[in-house]
Amino acid sequence: MYKKNPTALLSFYLVISILILSFNLNPSIKAARDFLFYMVISPYSKIDSAIFSVNKFGNNIKELVDAHQEILNLKNENKQLLTDLLKLKMFEVENKRLTELLNYKRNIRRKVSIARIIAKPSQQYYKTLVIDRGSEDGLQENKAVYGFYKNRFGIIGQVTDISKNTSQILLITNRISKIPGRILPANVDGIVVGNETNELEMSWIPNDAEIKIGDEVVSSSASDIFPTGISIGMIVSITQTGHLPFKSAKVRATIPAFQLTDVFIE
């Protein structure tokens, strides 16, 4: 009957709707609404929660991988920074040393130039050094070479072989090195001979000379190469030979040449 008369059916629905509206059933259907929402949303929220968990797990793995990569990058960066820091420290030490050298060079009255030690041959440890100055720099043979170590200035040797850009220094600790020395304050002369250790041998000291351990040995005026009064070392022991009119002494060199990086050349 209703299919034949849809207008009547519509009127019926409209009347019902108006009745529903008139009675304001909103508070009454709230419980039904909550229940239905729970029924519909509950499984959905569980699925959503599962998807969220999987997604979160994926994100966690991604974050872990990213963090690992970041750690590797930071480690590399740290290595680079440590290397740079080391370089900076080396530069700082070098700068300090060069500043000291320059200050010292200004204070000494002699006209000297600075050369860098470029080789310390292992078999020639107490014998020779090689420096980075040669004939092109105006260097000549038999020039005195000095060193500066812990605020002390002293003789370390003399220039021997010269090539175009490098030169060899014969150290005073070499056995073939013989230089005239004077013991202060006794003003007694002798010959300082190398011993291929840091201790030199000073011989030809008159038996009656009043010397003692701790006296300073400087270059003597008898030397053609070394100017007078430059420190060579300090007496550490004295040897008496009863049957000879001379005695000898062990002298510790003022400058340990093997610890130097730069030298002064006359």
Binding site: Y2, P6, Y13, I16, S17, I20
Partner: peptide, 29 residues
Amino acid sequence: GSASGCSIGFIIGLVDGIFSASTFGIFSF
């Protein structure tokens, strides 16, 4: 047709009214 349309409209309107924030009965109408 109209009869089926208004019947289904009334029912879906009622259910939609339950789930929506608007006043119950408006959608059914």
